[in-house]
Simulated scan of single mutants.
Amino acid sequence: MAGPGPAWSSRLAIQLVRGLPGTRQIHRRTVRALGLRKVNQMVFRENTSTIRGMINQVKRLLSVETVEMYEARVKEQAEHRALRPPLVINHSQPVSS
């Protein structure tokens, strides 16, 4: 029996970044089998050889990152938004003399 596999992430975050019109029917079926229906939709799948083969078949339509990379990116974006000061607009009444 073989030892543990490589230290890869066990889950992948897969996002459909290009539309399906104009693509081959087999590619549309592959994207659908991954669970993606709309552009910018994201799904999380196990990192298996079957899933990696499906990703490789339609890699020009997808954006793939590990769950760890995805969580780090989301955290960084949240911190970046938190650093912005709030926008304050004062609508004071004109001073009449």
Rank of each mutant, 00 (worst) to 15 (best):
A2E: 07
A2M: 05
P4K: 05
P4C: 02
G5V: 04
G5F: 03
P6T: 09
P6S: 15
P6I: 09
A7P: 02
A7F: 08
S10E: 07
R11H: 12
L12V: 04
A13P: 01
Q15M: 09
Q15C: 14
L16S: 07
L16N: 06
L16T: 06
V17D: 08
V17Q: 06
R18D: 01
R18S: 02
G19C: 06
L20C: 07
P21L: 04
G22T: 02
G22N: 07
R24K: 11
Q25M: 07
Q25F: 08
I26M: 05
H27E: 11
R28Y: 00
R28P: 00
R29F: 00
T30F: 00
A33P: 00
G35W: 00
G35M: 02
L36I: 06
L36E: 06
R37Y: 01
R37S: 04
K38M: 01
V39I: 09
N40P: 02
N40V: 02
Q41G: 08
V43D: 02
F44K: 03
R45E: 04
N47S: 05
N47P: 02
N47D: 08
N47W: 03
N47L: 00
N47H: 11
S49W: 00
S49A: 12
R52D: 08
G53Y: 05
G53N: 10
M54P: 11
M54W: 11
M54E: 12
I55R: 01
I55V: 10
V58H: 00
K59M: 09
K59W: 03
K59S: 15
L61I: 11
L62V: 10
S63I: 11
S63T: 09
V64L: 08
E65Q: 15
E68F: 08
E68Q: 14
E68Y: 10
M69E: 11
M69T: 13
Y70T: 04
E71S: 13
R73L: 12
R73P: 10
V74D: 10
K75C: 09
K75L: 12
E76V: 11
Q77V: 07
E79A: 14
H80E: 15
H80T: 13
R81A: 14
A82V: 03
A82N: 05
L83N: 15
L83E: 15
L83G: 15
P85I: 06
P85W: 09
L87F: 15
L87S: 14
V88F: 12
V88K: 11
I89L: 13
I89V: 14
N90R: 06
H91F: 13
H91N: 13
S92N: 12
S92L: 13
Q93S: 10
Q93Y: 08
V95Q: 14
V95R: 15
S97M: 01
S97R: 08
